[in-house]
Design a protein around this nucleic acid. Sequence first.
DNA 1: ACCATATTTCTAGAAATATAGAAATGATTG
DNA 2: CAATCATTTCTATATTTCTAGAAATATGGT
Lengths: 108, 108
Amino acid sequence: MKIDDAAAHLEALGNPTRLKIYRALIRAGEQGMPVGRLLAKLDVAGSTLSHHLKTLMGVGLISQKRNGATLVCHANYDQMRSLVAFLVDECCAESPGSCSPHTFGKVA
Amino acid sequence: MKIDDAAAHLEALGNPTRLKIYRALIRAGEQGMPVGRLLAKLDVAGSTLSHHLKTLMGVGLISQKRNGATLVCHANYDQMRSLVAFLVDECCAESPGSCSPHTFGKVA
DNA sequence: ACCATATTTCTAGAAATATAGAAATGATTG
DNA sequence: CAATCATTTCTATATTTCTAGAAATATGGT
């Protein structure tokens, strides 16, 4: 991943509301979550939510798929993986000892 | 790590200039890098660089230590680890299969 | 066709950010 | 202590971002 792309991704996630949106979508898994349910979870105006979703879509972190009258949002796991890989690569580029793979493996 | 902290860290890294600063410091390793050398590497005014350094320090991603007349900047690896751990945890919270630890282990 | 639901786009104002020139501060050297 | 180097703080300006109300668009049901 190019550094400017990484910066764009980080910037998109660097807003509390957007990070909450993104976390909710990550946690929603493959089935995603409709805009309306995000609206109920997060305390923001619809127009504000829409604005943030647009930002996240703009950098490819999420996508939307229409299902009838509702739009279902999905996190793009690949983008997340690329971003984390970028951070890990940078982190370990010249100081391998300080961040071995298992250091990040606190999964579960 | 609390989500608002994570957002603050991501926001700090979500600016191309700041991400370049941070990357340079990460790569500089334990010995760090003086402000003057960052100034030579990155094409910005001193006041602008100083402003960005302050932002990165504000969230604890870097620190400075004076060595005579020069200020040497250091990346804070612990903060980076916490941030990556946050992202990995979120990513894997409800869909473990899609991001097993080794997925991020492209640490050459 | 009409109505209700779901969501976006338009518009605007307030606040935050990025940038850099000029002046100020801190440290070293002669 | 004057001069110089390294860096920050002050100040100002241009731009972007966040927020949300109002209006518009899209879909589905009756």
